[in-house]
Simulated scan of single mutants.
Amino acid sequence: MPMAGDDIVALIVAGIPDATVEMTDLAGDGDHWAALVTAESFRGLPRLKQQRAVYAALGDRMGGVLHALQLSTAVPQE
Score class of each variant (00 low, 15 high):
residue 73 T to S: 14
residue 18 D to S: 10
residue 69 L to H: 14
residue 9 V to T: 14
residue 33 W to A: 10
residue 20 T to W: 02
residue 59 G to C: 05
residue 31 D to R: 00
residue 33 W to C: 03
residue 27 A to P: 05
residue 39 A to E: 02
residue 2 P to M: 04
residue 25 D to P: 07
residue 75 V to R: 03
residue 6 D to F: 07
residue 59 G to H: 04
residue 69 L to Q: 09
residue 3 M to G: 04
residue 65 V to S: 06
residue 54 V to E: 09
residue 47 R to Q: 10
residue 72 S to M: 06
residue 38 T to S: 13
residue 63 G to H: 03
residue 46 P to S: 01
residue 20 T to V: 07
residue 32 H to Q: 12
residue 26 L to W: 00
residue 43 R to V: 00
residue 68 A to N: 12
residue 19 A to T: 09
residue 14 A to R: 15
residue 73 T to A: 13
residue 15 G to T: 04
residue 51 Q to D: 07
residue 59 G to T: 01
residue 50 Q to C: 14
residue 65 V to H: 05
residue 46 P to D: 00
residue 4 A to Y: 13
residue 75 V to M: 10
residue 17 P to I: 04
residue 27 A to T: 14
residue 23 M to H: 06
residue 38 T to L: 05
residue 53 A to D: 12
residue 72 S to Q: 11
residue 41 S to D: 02
residue 42 F to W: 08
residue 59 G to D: 01
residue 17 P to D: 10
residue 6 D to Y: 04
residue 40 E to Y: 00
residue 76 P to W: 11
residue 14 A to E: 14
residue 21 V to P: 11
residue 57 A to E: 12
residue 49 K to L: 12
residue 33 W to S: 06
residue 77 Q to W: 03
residue 35 A to C: 06
residue 73 T to P: 13
residue 45 L to H: 01
residue 19 A to C: 10
residue 43 R to K: 14
residue 20 T to H: 07
residue 78 E to S: 12
residue 54 V to D: 09
residue 68 A to F: 06
residue 11 L to W: 12
residue 19 A to M: 05
residue 64 G to I: 00
residue 60 D to Q: 02
residue 74 A to M: 08
residue 41 S to L: 07
residue 76 P to S: 08
residue 78 E to W: 08
residue 21 V to D: 01
residue 14 A to P: 03
residue 69 L to N: 09
residue 61 R to K: 10
residue 17 P to Q: 01
residue 72 S to R: 14
residue 1 M to C: 07
residue 56 A to W: 02
residue 24 T to A: 10
residue 53 A to S: 12
residue 32 H to G: 05
residue 51 Q to W: 04
residue 29 D to Y: 00
residue 12 I to R: 02
residue 53 A to G: 01
residue 47 R to W: 00
residue 46 P to N: 11
residue 11 L to I: 08
residue 7 D to H: 12
residue 68 A to P: 01
residue 13 V to N: 03
residue 68 A to G: 07
residue 3 M to L: 14
residue 7 D to N: 07
residue 78 E to Q: 07
residue 44 G to H: 04
residue 44 G to R: 11
residue 54 V to M: 08
residue 77 Q to D: 13
residue 46 P to K: 13
residue 1 M to H: 15
residue 23 M to W: 05
residue 10 A to P: 06
residue 26 L to E: 15
residue 6 D to A: 15
residue 69 L to F: 15
residue 54 V to C: 05
residue 16 I to P: 10
residue 6 D to E: 15
residue 32 H to E: 15
residue 76 P to V: 08
residue 15 G to D: 13
residue 39 A to T: 07
residue 20 T to S: 11
residue 22 E to W: 03
residue 29 D to H: 03
residue 33 W to T: 06
residue 6 D to N: 14
residue 33 W to M: 07
residue 43 R to S: 09
residue 5 G to N: 09
residue 67 H to N: 14
residue 40 E to D: 15
residue 25 D to V: 00
residue 29 D to L: 06
residue 50 Q to W: 02
residue 71 L to N: 05
residue 52 R to C: 01
residue 43 R to D: 02
residue 44 G to F: 08
residue 62 M to V: 07
residue 38 T to E: 15
residue 52 R to A: 11
residue 71 L to S: 08
residue 41 S to A: 09
residue 28 G to E: 10
residue 69 L to C: 10
residue 8 I to S: 09
residue 48 L to K: 05
residue 25 D to Q: 01
residue 64 G to L: 02
residue 69 L to Y: 15
residue 2 P to E: 13
residue 30 G to K: 09
residue 65 V to Q: 12
residue 3 M to Q: 11
residue 28 G to Y: 00
residue 1 M to Q: 13
residue 24 T to R: 11
residue 7 D to E: 15
residue 7 D to I: 15
residue 28 G to M: 05
